[in-house]
Design a protein around this nucleic acid. Structure first.
Lengths: 201, 201
DNA sequence: CAATATTGAATGAATCGTCATTCATTTTGA
DNA sequence: TCAAAATGAATGACGATTCATTCAATATTG
């Protein structure tokens, strides 16, 4: 069974990233030791430096690669929809599907993104901005069609939407939670945000 | 005798806390050295340990004491108002007044609270929960008066409100005041949240 | 085909700088 | 005068990063 592992999932890069996500989620970036990640990934400490320049870059790569995938997926879903109001509804739905699918990643993004954005110099955070701009894009379209009041600024609304969703993400990933189901979070969030943003007909 | 709380008018205690807020805001908790705070406060490194058991406790004290004051102030303001809808409006207004008044503190709370909540074991975060429960309290009253739909859960709404406000706080403290004024943030936030939560008459 | 050489991925112990915290000493002020 | 407050140099622990070495896979040779 040890013949040729090269065709197997011996992708160390991926293996280390997954271990990092899991460990950062459990202990937080600053309380995680490289040796913790190495142990979780079943590689030597030094191996991590063959794939990532340093600890900061490991976190940044994690964000970048994840956001890339997420952006791609959500764009795909939105492309099928014409009505901006329906797009916004879908965006919210999609958000909760994502956090359900990868709880550890959701936790790392929710808890560590602010810090890293502010304190890791290498990180310009383009991908995250791109993600937020999907929301403001939808809102601009809605405004053009008279579905959202024109005096509300898309740059502010996108942050409110993200902030609300992100805070709900947090209670779900931290509490584990028997208290609120993803479905209830999703439906309450959708109702409040749609009512708040779209013009009532 | 020397260490904790109730020597209200202790100059150094306050002096160190202010320096800590300023320094944490600039460099983040984990990138701040005790010696940085000492320098900012014009005291010796060791002096800080006469007032705070360790670095973690310094951050926790900062949260607790600030939240105490904030809770007290907001309760006072809300007490003058009967209508829960007006209370919610006032809560939002008050939030932005606060961040305008103490930008550094707003930044520290917004950026560091999640981390500390999750990773500092000593910290049970009672005060922050109390703050959030002011919001859910208002919403429960509104529901009792038929002003907010009963099927929306106050525990979810309080988080959405806080999340939205917190995210707007973040763009203001990080970007400086250039792009959006506090007043515009406040008015857009109020409009969206009130429309989202209150039943349209 | 076997023997040998080359390659580069992986290892993990050792290094080295960085602080949080301590405490012997000094300063303050009642 | 002396207890409390303040100081800041010294300590000790920790942990990111390095790099000499190992090892397995593949290539070369005769």
């Amino acid at each position: 069974m040890k013949n040729n592992v090269n065709h197997e999932k011996n992708d160390k890069h991926e293996q280390i990233l997954r271990a990092a996500i899991k460990t950062f989620a459990r202990k937080g970036f600053y309380n995680t030791r490289i040796s913790d990640i190495a142990k979780e990934a079943n590689v030597a400490d030094g191996t991590i430096y063959l794939y990532f320049r340093n600890k900061d870059i490991l976190l940044v790569s994690l964000f970048e690669e994840s956001m890339n995938q997420i952006i791609h997926m959500v764009q795909e879903r939105l492309a099928e929809i014409d009505d901006p109001i329906e797009q916004l509804r879908t965006f919210i739905k999609f958000h909760f599907e994502l956090i359900k699918k990868d709880k550890f990643l959701a936790e790392v993004i929710s808890v560590e993104l602010r810090q890293s954005n502010k304190f890791i110099k290498e990180y310009k955070n383009i991908k995250f901005k791109e993600y937020l701009n999907i929301i403001s894009g939808i809102i601009r379209n809605a405004q053009a069609k008279g579905l959202v009041a024109k005096h509300l600024m898309p740059g502010i609304l996108k942050r409110m939407v993200f902030g609300a969703l992100d805070e709900l993400t947090l209670i779900w990933v931290l509490a584990g939670d028997s208290k609120y189901s993803i479905e209830k979070l999703s439906s309450d969030a959708t109702e409040v945000l749609m009512n708040g943003i779209a013009i009532k007909k």
